[in-house]
């Protein structure tokens, strides 16, 4: 059986007395996109840094492609890893192209690819401009370009869309999708949960250094058992709605004129819809699943 690309096994990390990462274990398959979410200070960045071998684990083990991180063979593996740190900082006195050429030299990859990578992230027009003249979004694009140098097989992206405009965000995820299709494994963090919920295969929820949950967005929704919301516009009386839903265990029922909001458990969804369908004058019906934000907050409340 093939090794997972990333194996994190019972990892702990202490900063003095403070336990920043508390017995975290998970693995990431080749070509998978894993989202890492958690509040500020949850331990995501520490976990990132340990996976990149920037800081040692206090206990446990992390392997990338079967190779222990910080082991002697990891240096070579680093050439196949791309990393975009949160709040990426470059050298202001270099141009965008020179910046990439510097990192390409460190990664020992072909410097002639730099222009093509700049083109890919939409920065070729600013290739010869100094980085101190770049906007926040342009610096972020340059950071992404840097991470793409050397055709990486594994990408660690920490808040990669921070500072990007909507078009930039869409373009970023388009490139990421292409890379994914090409078998590149991605670990990504973002505070904008609505943005990543459709774009990752699995999510790891980190809270106070612990892995609280791991699974697809749907699995996490089901595990936390949040109610879904049904929004209706109808011409029936409030009484008719109440009568139709009699006997169903609803979480919430709000009727304001023609607008009705019903919250119910997933298991009751079909029953509620069937009963509402029997009402004669329904103009519109929208079923809203709990968002990733709801799920995340649900986990936060649970703990």
């Amino acid at each position: 059986m093939k090794h997972p690309v990333i194996e994190v096994s019972d990892v702990y990390r202490y900063y003095g007395e403070v336990l920043a990462v508390d017995g975290v274990s998970f693995s990431v398959r080749r070509g998978e996109t894993l989202g890492l979410i958690g509040h500020n200070g949850a331990g995501k960045s520490t976990l990132f840094k340990m996976m990149l071998g920037l800081i040692p684990v206090s206990a446990g083990e992390i392997r990338i492609n079967g190779e222990p991180v910080r082991g002697s063979g990891f240096r070579e593996l680093r050439r196949t890893i791309g990393y975009l740190p949160e709040n990426v900082v470059f050298y202001d006195n270099l141009t965008g192209l020179e910046t990439l050429q510097f990192f390409a030299a460190l990664k020992n990859c072909d410097k002639r690819d730099c222009l093509a990578v700049l083109e890919k992230v939409g920065l070729s027009h600013a290739a010869t401009r100094r980085v101190d003249g770049y906007s926040k979004g342009m610096r972020q694009r340059l950071g992404f370009a840097q991470a793409l140098l050397g055709k990486p097989r594994l990408l660690f992206l920490d808040e990669p869309t921070s500072g990007l405009d909507p078009e930039g965000i869409r373009e970023f995820y388009r490139i990421l999708h292409e890379l994914n299709a090409d078998g590149v494994t991605v670990v990504i963090t973002s505070h904008i949960l609505s943005e990543i919920q459709e774009r990752v295969e699995r999510l790891a929820v980190i809270k106070s250094g612990k892995l609280q949950a791991l699974g697809t967005v749907q699995e996490l929704r089901e595990a936390v058992d949040l109610p879904l919301a049904i929004h209706l516009i109808l011409r029936e009386t409030a009484e008719a709605v109440r009568t139709a839903l009699q006997g169903v265990a609803l979480v919430k029922l709000e009727i304001a004129g023609q607008n009705v909001v019903i919250e119910c458990h997933r298991t009751d969804k079909m029953d509620v819809l069937r009963r509402l369908g029997m009402l004669a004058e329904v103009d519109d019906i929208v079923v809203r699943e709990p968002t990733l934000e709801d799920v995340f907050l649900g986990y936060a409340r649970e703990s």
């Binding site: 840094k49 990149l52 920037l54 240096r75 070579e76 680093r78 050439r79 890893i81 990393y83 740190p85 709040n87 990426v88 900082v89 470059f90 050298y91 990192f103 460190l106 990664k107 020992n108 840097q146």
Partner: peptide, 14 residues
């Protein structure tokens, strides 16, 4: 302090 050290050390350099 600038925050560029982590990126440098994530490269194949000791």
């Amino acid at each position: 302090e600038r925050g560029s050290l982590d990126l440098l050390l994530s490269m194949p350099i000791t």
